[in-house]
Design a protein around this nucleic acid. Structure first.
Lengths: 145, 145
DNA sequence: CCGGATCCGTTTCGATACTG
DNA sequence: CAGTATCGAAACGGATCCGG
């Protein structure tokens, strides 16, 4: 499913072995900032991920302890995907990616309704991360993005 | 050289189109925290990157404005690879990756000589990032890692 | 319907050997 | 020293199928 490649002992290397692809961090972002919890939500996030790739990544994230999956009580055919504490630890990385993107990818205008949250990312980062983290822990995402 | 895949307009998506692989952010890390500037240094960083992959990634990083290459005056057969301002903007992301790695990859002991810098990453992050950034701008890397 | 699994043609990656 | 060339392996993406 994933390539096995000899790696240095640096934690960053090993982290990138799992996170270092085009999809994995987008899934994390969608959980954190989109409040996504279902397979279908990720699939229709607008990124155009294929079903098999999504399936792969969710499995890989679960195997590596970033997310956990549960039956959805209200609809037994559905599964909930939730961040673990390990996965919640990725929130600062995602926030930095977002900040970087809005700072350096100036080819697109920033939607009005995002400007507030982007400003907070930059000028009140620590508190924002705490808020988001608490929100994700309680599974009552406020759809920050 | 790189796959072209339809992407959403989100800056994070587009950033991950370039940064989202196992090698690119390691190269950035090596520039920032290792003070690396030459092809050979990246090649022998201990990560085991292949020559063509390194070549590809350096080219890609340059094409996308993250690094620039210059002739090395003291040895004309050598090339210097330096971060641009856009690349310097990635430093917070790399720092967060490092922090995450040391927090959540507990399978390896943290070397004594890194504990100080890791502590600073967590408790004096903003100032540390400023110091590193200035250091990288002046090309007198202090080998923070 | 929902969450995948499987197959398959195409693209990309990467290890090694080789070159200017 | 700094890369190319080659070529098999892996990953991708789309379509389709399947079990609940």
């Amino acid at each position: 499913m994933k390539k096995t490649h000899k790696r240095s002992d640096c934690p960053v290397s090993r982290a990138l072995d799992i996170l270092g692809d085009k999809w994995t961090l987008l899934i994390i972002r969608d959980i954190v900032f989109g409040g996504f919890r279902f397979y279908n939500e990720f699939l229709n996030s607008g990124e155009g991920i294929a079903t098999n790739v999504l399936s792969d990544r969710l499995k890989l994230l679960e195997q590596n302890g970033f997310i956990e999956s549960k039956q959805y009580e209200k609809q037994r055919t559905k599964k909930l995907y939730l961040l673990t504490e390990k996965g919640i630890g990725l929130i600062p990385i995602v926030v930095e990616l977002l900040i970087w993107g809005f700072d350096f990818d100036t080819s697109l205008p920033i939607p009005e309704d995002r400007k507030v949250i982007i400003a907070r990312m930059k000028y009140d980062k620590e508190n924002l991360i705490k808020e988001i983290t608490e929100s994700v822990r309680k599974h009552d995402s406020k759809n920050f993005c």
